[in-house]
Design a protein around this nucleic acid. Sequence first.
DNA 1: GGGTTCCGAAACGTGGAAGTTCCGTATAGA
DNA 2: TCTATACGGAACTTCCACGTTTCGGAACCC
Lengths: 206, 206
Amino acid sequence: MTQLDTAPARPGRKRDHTRDPEILNAALDVLAETGYDRMTVDMVATRAKAGKATLYRRWPSKAELVIDAVACLKVGDRDAPLPDTGSLREDLVSQIKPHSIDDGQRKLRIMTGLASMLSTSPELARTANETIVRPRIERNLALFERAVERGEIEPGLDLELIAGLSTALAANRMLLEGKPVDRDFLVGVIDAVVLPALGIRADIPA
Amino acid sequence: MTQLDTAPARPGRKRDHTRDPEILNAALDVLAETGYDRMTVDMVATRAKAGKATLYRRWPSKAELVIDAVACLKVGDRDAPLPDTGSLREDLVSQIKPHSIDDGQRKLRIMTGLASMLSTSPELARTANETIVRPRIERNLALFERAVERGEIEPGLDLELIAGLSTALAANRMLLEGKPVDRDFLVGVIDAVVLPALGIRADIPA
DNA sequence: GGGTTCCGAAACGTGGAAGTTCCGTATAGA
DNA sequence: TCTATACGGAACTTCCACGTTTCGGAACCC
């Protein structure tokens, strides 16, 4: 019905969409550092070495820019192969790599920056949940289910709840206690909470 | 040196300090509902049926008003007697009362509203931690230690970590999943995570 | 009772950030 | 080559919330 239906061929310079990821990444960085409310569009533009007009040409508002940035957030090592050592503990621990820790810290900071919006915008809450926390939980669930098939843990447990333990505790530690989420902490959570909840006694107590 | 050193006796109407708690409570309500950045001093004044000038006569800025409100937050049932049923599970479950659930939900929402400030203001982070989350953890720790003395759980566990499980999971559930933190959920956390982490097998599986 | 201060309410000044427009330059289509 | 658009950069407008001041009235001390 509109003139754009049949004639989208406009003259003039085309938008350089290769810059989109840089802008969205800059938005995520500023978001992680300052939080949604204190973050300004100027900060994002400066960080991305772009003009503010360029940003508003592509996203209608600050809110939509942030939503898109979260939605396009690199899913991290989703495609990385799941470890399969035959031992659930080894599988879980082998997932804790320096790269994975840094990635997790950044995502945690992004979630913190979004916190004030999560209760206001259900759409953003759903997007953030699906792109940031779900992938991590899904990986844990996959490891758990393989352990069930091996007979290492018994069926019937609330795996969903247990798979979310590490992220919840990590968020708590960083936000409230202000302590770093390092390898020792994550291994400690696995041994002290996750494995016991799965019915696996700590076999390396000393 | 100033005239206030020796002569604090000023004439005129005195400040009605009985209104302080109402104002601080209104501030906490608005904070829980809208979050720190979207909260305005006008909202607090209107909610408290007070003038904005009255608020600024007592607190020099919005930030200090909020800090004071959090610091003066009613510590809830800190003085309520600890349950002592002889069974750790009974002790933990008996703490879950309707009043306690509502109180916890409100405090969780306040923490959410503060989230954007926690990483900015260490003073506020410490205050919020001490008045909101620590009391709950301390109660759990006390119950745990009595269970250690009874021989119900073995010593040497990371009780500090385990005592913070329920609050961390409750925050996660409300903020990310948007589901209510009700009695069933809290009991489920105790049975599926807390007690196993303490080395107590679930004795009521069926 | 006079003077001083507090009260709630409303108007006011100010700064900062969202969103818009303009500029000079660069790039693509006709 | 000419025109229309995108680009980075900066000025600009608009809006909103902090924080201040003013006002009529009420409470308290002398």
